[in-house]
Structures are given as C-alpha cells and as structure tokens.
Computed example of a mutant assay.
Amino acid sequence: MVGSGKAPDEKWRDERRARDRRGRRAEWLAALALRLHGYRILAKREKSPLGEIDLIAVRGHRVAFVEVKQRATLEAAEAAITPAQRARIRRAASLWLSRNPAFQAHDLGFDIVFLVGWRWPQHLENAL
C-alpha cells in the first residue's frame, strides 16, 4: 500500500493550515472589495468570548458586521450560514459595540460577502 508518508494528525494539520490560508485570502479580498465601495475596515477577525466577526467596517454613519463565506457555489455559500452562526455574530457585535461606544449611535448592518469561484466578491447588505 502506497501512502503519502504522513501520519493522520499531520495530514489534518496540513488541511487545517490550507483552510486557514483560504479563509484569510477570502477575508482579504472581501476587505478590498469593501474598501473600493467606500468602507473603512475597523477590525479583521474580531474575536470575543461570544464569537468571531470576520470584518467590521464603517461607511458614513453605518457600521457593518460582515461574515465572509467562500464556497464553490453560491448555494453552498448561502447554506453555510446557519441560524446559530447569525445569533453568535449578533451577540459578538453587541459586545463589540459595548466596548466601542463611539459607534453606538451609528446605524448597524449585518452583512455577508460571498466569494464564489473566480468572480468578484458579492456584498449583500443586511443579509444576516
């Protein structure tokens, strides 16, 4: 039997690193697309005890909490956003706002950026 010569845990780590690289690339492209549409990125991969927010951006008087999904198809990307994930992002956003009072009076948006294939990122406002 011919194998790759790697132990199962090593293969798992390699796959995990590859997923992490793809996720960072997707978030970078999403941030670029948002910047080109006039947003200023306030935070990337904002982590809290309540959850993680991929991007936090502001444009004018609107703060957007953005979830980034990269999948092979739009249907797969849409299916990857679960009700539990939506609730977790909203809780994390609430905590972030409590820690950043300068933005509490802003309009809030819970947005999604889909990256599908080689297409330009698709930004959907208030989709979460």
Rank of each mutant, 00 (worst) to 15 (best):
R35M: 15
D14E: 14
W120L: 10
L74P: 01
L97D: 13
I53D: 05
D14G: 09
F114N: 07
P83H: 13
I41N: 12
T73P: 04
R90N: 03
F103G: 06
G109C: 15
K47W: 00
R45L: 08
W96D: 06
E125F: 12
R22H: 14
R40Q: 14
P83T: 12
V58W: 04
L50I: 03
L108D: 02
I41A: 13
K6I: 13
R119M: 14
W28P: 00
A76M: 02
V113Q: 05
L32F: 12
R91L: 13
A72P: 00
A30Q: 04
R119S: 15
I53M: 12
A127C: 14
R22I: 08
I81S: 03
G23L: 06
L55N: 02
I89E: 06
A79T: 08
T82F: 11
A105M: 07
S4I: 04
R40W: 13
E27M: 02
R25E: 15
H61N: 14
P49I: 01
H106T: 07
L42T: 07
L50E: 06
R59I: 03
Q70G: 03
A30V: 03
K11L: 10
S48C: 06
G5F: 12
S48K: 01
R45N: 15
E27Q: 05
A64C: 01
W28V: 01
H106S: 11
I41C: 12
G5C: 10
E46N: 02
H106W: 15
L124D: 05
L128P: 11
R62A: 08
I89T: 07
P83G: 14
G38W: 08
L115V: 05
F65Q: 01
Q70S: 09
R24W: 09
L55D: 05
G109Q: 14
A7H: 09
L124N: 08
V68C: 03
A77V: 06
E125Y: 07
H106V: 04
A57E: 08
V58T: 01
L95N: 02
R119A: 15
L32Q: 15
R62D: 05
K11R: 09
G51A: 13
S94G: 12
P8F: 03
V116W: 00
R19I: 09
E125D: 12
V113H: 02
W120R: 10
A105H: 10
R13M: 10
K44I: 08
R119N: 15
A80Q: 05
R24G: 04
R16T: 11
H123E: 15
R59F: 00
G3D: 13
L115E: 05
D20E: 11
R19F: 09
L108P: 01
D20R: 07
L74F: 00
T82G: 07
Q85I: 07
V63M: 13
Q122Y: 14
L128E: 02
H106R: 06
D111H: 03
V66Y: 00
V116N: 10
L108K: 09
L97Q: 09
A30T: 03
I81V: 14
R22G: 14
A33Y: 05
A31L: 04
E75R: 05
K69H: 11
A93I: 02
E15Y: 07
I41S: 12
E10Q: 10
